[in-house]
């Protein structure tokens, strides 16, 4: 099974995860910019983070045969921090880069006016850079937050096919389905969705515009839940083609609208097989010792 994980925070994951993901069939992913589990205190922290997303993390991923892309944005939670408003001025330079396939994650956390302002402004940037948008829906007050997000998307003038609304569940799938936006589901061990609940949603709503991700990060999460969902779909009677539509074709079609996806297999040279020892796979990793 070939898998595209359209939402995963590899910066927080280990090389064991990369190896296991490759074994599970993951060949490409998108890492959206989000918060780090604790607040950043300045704009330069974001610059270093974005540099990592278009630099080191891409390199790390390719060593394991997985194509790495990212989405760049000021996340909703930190949009509330006045120390970080300058991050919005940093964005254009990153949105011009190869491998940046969307603006995201944008959206709401606590439904504040600062969040709404940053959300609107970043949708303008998406129009300017002709990039799709990844919308995070809030954990708390999810239904209201999702509804308000869809209103802002409609006002922005961005066509719904350029918008992925993520972290959906049984309570929010219907309104996003009606909006024409792509629907994202984060399969998480404790919260959000489980593979079995996901299968029931797919049975009810079909596989069009449906996307499944692990959203794995620094929290209790599992980068292989995309595969587990594919297995659950097969057990429930979905065909191979239907399963691949959800796990590969749909995310490729969505992020492919950026014109910047690179999906050819990582060659053996890039994945280091022919190199005499590189900094991650072989020899001594130059990690915390230097």
């Amino acid at each position: 099974m070939r898998i595209f994980d359209p939402h995963i925070h590899m910066t927080s994951r280990t090389t064991d995860d990369y190896r296991a993901m490759h074994e599970a069939g993951v060949r490409a992913l998108v890492e959206p910019a989000f918060w780090l589990g604790q607040p950043r205190t300045g704009v330069s922290s974001f610059r270093d983070y974005f540099d990592g997303l278009v630099g080191w993390e891409r390199f790390r991923s390719e060593r394991f045969g997985i194509r790495h892309h990212c989405a760049i944005a000021l996340n909703p939670k930190e949009a509330n921090d006045p120390r970080l408003s300058g991050v919005l001025d940093l964005l254009p330079r990153y949105l011009a880069k190869d491998g940046v396939v969307a603006v995201g994650e944008v959206g709401f956390d606590s439904m504040t006016s600062e969040e709404e302002k940053a959300f609107r402004y970043q949708m303008e940037l998406a129009l300017e850079f002709e990039l799709p948008v990844l919308v995070h829906t809030p954990h708390r007050d999810k239904v209201a937050g999702t509804r308000r997000s869809l209103e802002l998307v409609a006002e922005s003038g961005i066509p719904p096919e350029m918008v992925l609304v993520d972290h959906l569940n049984e309570a929010t799938v219907e309104m996003v389905h009606a909006s024409g936006c792509t629907m994202g589901f984060s399969i998480y061990p404790d919260t959000k969705m489980s593979p079995d609940r996901m299968v029931r949603i797919l049975q009810e709503w079909g596989t069009d515009r449906m996307i499944v991700n692990s959203a794995a990060d620094w929290g209790h999460s599992d980068p292989l839940l995309t595969l587990r969902t594919g297995e659950a779909m097969r057990s429930a009677g979905f065909t191979v083609a239907e399963t691949e539509r959800v796990l590969w074709d749909n995310p490729v079609a969505f992020y492919g609208q950026s014109g910047r996806l690179v999906l050819d297999e990582v060659g053996p040279a890039e994945a280091s097989a022919t190199f005499s020892g590189n900094s991650i796979l072989r020899g001594q990793p130059e990690g915390d010792t230097q």
């Binding site: 011009a96 190869d98 690179v262 040279a269 890039e270």
Partner: peptide, 26 residues
């Protein structure tokens, strides 16, 4: 150049050069 430099690969060409190494180490 600030805008054109990042766009060069997707607008003109990408991939292995004369060294044959798509990663650009060689």
């Amino acid at each position: 150049v600030a805008v054109l430099f990042p766009a060069a690969a997707r607008r003109v060409a990408r991939g292995a050069g004369p060294s044959g190494d798509p990663d650009g180490v060689l």
